[in-house]
Design a protein around this nucleic acid. Structure first.
Lengths: 223, 223
DNA sequence: CAGTGTGAAAATTTTCACAGCG
DNA sequence: CGCTGTGAAAATTTTCACACTG
C-alpha cells in the first residue's frame, strides 16, 4: 500500500481506518433509523466487531467530536463520516466488462443509489455492445474516453478478464477517473495519483480454503 | 482480525501473507504456462506489485526452498503455495442468497473450477426455490443443513440481505462449514473456530470515493 | 461518574541491508 | 557473481490505561 502522499493535504487518514469507515457508516445509518440519538464507542464497536479503542482512535482522526460521559451524537457523527468518505455528492461509475459479475454490479443497489450511479457500461463483445443493462446502453471500448467524459464518470470498475485489465486501467486513467476498483484477476497499475484497489473473488476463495482447512482439521465434520 | 489461534498448530502464517498467497499463485501459474523454469524474487515481486523483501519473507514462511544465485523453481514453488492454500482438494461451496451477486457467483468460473465447486444453492424466495442455476437446484433455507451435509460442503458464501446474514451464518456454522465469505452488508460472527471473512462491495465503493475525492482534488478533470 | 481522547506500550508488518550459499 | 533467507531497524497499527471533561 503506497498511497499516502501526505505532501500538501492535511494529514491523510491511515488506510486501515479508511477501510473501516464504511462499516461505521452502515452501523450509524441503522442507529439513525432506530432513532438513536447517541452511541458510545463500546456499543458501536460491538456492533461492527472492532476494538473500542481502535474505534475511538479512528473517529478522532475525523477531528471527532464526541461528548465525554455521553458518547457520540449519531447524526453529527454520521455527517462527519460521510464527509470523510466524500459522500456529499453522487459519484458516477463506469463498469468495463459485462460478464456475470459486471452485469450483476450494474444492476445492484449499491451501484444505483444516492451516492453512486452507473454512468457508463463498456464491453468489447459485439454481441453485448448496443444492448441495455439497467437502462444504460453498453458502448464499445473505443468509446470509453468519450463516455467517461460526457457522463462525468470519476470512478472506474474493471470486471474484464485478467488479460484485458491493464489496458482498460490505462484507458480509464487517461480518460481522467480518480480511482479504480479492479475485480479482474491481474495486478494493474496506473499513474501516481490514481488509486487502484484490487478485489479478487477468486483470491478470496483461496484465502477461505486456507482457513477452512485449519478449521476442519480441528473440528472434523461429523458425517 | 482476531483469528490467529496459534494454539496447537505449528506457527500460523500471518494474515497479510495469506492474503498475498493467491496473488503469487496466479503469477506462478502464468509463469508455468510460459514454460518459465525459475523466477527471482525481484521479478515475481514486480509482477504482483509487492516489495521483493516482503515476497521473500512471505515465501520463507512456507519453509521455502529457493536456490541462492538462481531464484525459485516455478513448479516447486507453485506446489508449496498450493499446499499452503489447501488447494490439493476440491472445496464444495454453498451459496446462500441468489440475487444478482449470488447468481453471478454461482455461474462464475472461479466457483466452478478444479479447486472449488458449487455444491448447494439456498434461497428463501419461493419463486427461486426449485429453479436451476448452473445445473444446481435451488433449495429452501430449511434444507440448508441437510444439503450442506449431503454435498459435503465446507465453505459457505453469504449473498443475502444484511438482515438475513447473521441467521444464515449461524445455520452454516451449525451445519459444519469451516469458513464463511460474507458479502452481505452486515457484520456477522460465529463460534470460535470458524473463520468469517467480509467482502462488502458497497464499502469498497465508499473507500474508492474517499480516495477518488483526494485524487480529483489534485487533478481536477479537464472538462 | 460514564465515556472520550490520547500518551505510551505492545504487537504486528514492512523494509533495509548483508552474510552466506550455490 | 547473483540471489535467497533473515537479523535488525523502521514503520505502522492496535491496544491499554487513564487523565480529564461534560
Amino acid at each position: 500500500m503506497a498511497h499516502d502522499s501526505s505532501k500538501g493535504a492535511r494529514a491523510a487518514i491511515p488506510s486501515p481506518t479508511v477501510a473501516r469507515l464504511p462499516v461505521y457508516h452502515r452501523a450509524l445509518l441503522s442507529l439513525a433509523q432506530n432513532n438513536a440519538d447517541t452511541v458510545s464507542s463500546i456499543d458501536l464497536a460491538l456492533a461492527v466487531g472492532v476494538n473500542a479503542a481502535t474505534l475511538r482512535r479512528d473517529l478522532s482522526r475525523l477531528g471527532s467530536i464526541g461528548t465525554r460521559g455521553t458518547g457520540y451524537d449519531v447524526s453529527h457523527l454520521l455527517a462527519r463520516v460521510e464527509s470523510a468518505l466524500a459522500l456529499d455528492r453522487t459519484w458516477m461509475i463506469a463498469i468495463v466488462g459485462l460478464g456475470n459479475l459486471g452485469k450483476a454490479l450494474a444492476r445492484s443497489e449499491g451501484f444505483n443509489s444516492e451516492d453512486f450511479r452507473v454512468g457508463a457500461l463498456i464491453d468489447v463483445n459485439p454481441t453485448i455492445v448496443g444492448t441495455r443493462i439497467g437502462g444504460i446502453v453498453v458502448e464499445d471500448l473505443d468509446s470509453l474516453e468519450r463516455v467517461v467524459k460526457s457522463e462525468r464518470v470519476s470512478l472506474g470498475v474493471i470486471t474484464t478478464t485478467g488479460a484485458a485489465a491493464q489496458d482498460v486501467a490505462t484507458r480509464l486513467c487517461h480518460a481522467g477517473v480518480g480511482a479504480i476498483l479492479n475485480f479482474a484477476p491481474a495486478h494493474v497499475s496506473g499513474p501516481q495519483g490514481v488509486v487502484i484497489r484490487h478485489v479478487d473473488l477468486g483470491s478470496e476463495l483461496k484465502v477461505l480454503a486456507h482457513y477452512g482447512a485449519r478449521a476442519l482439521q480441528q473440528h472434523p465434520s461429523s458425517s
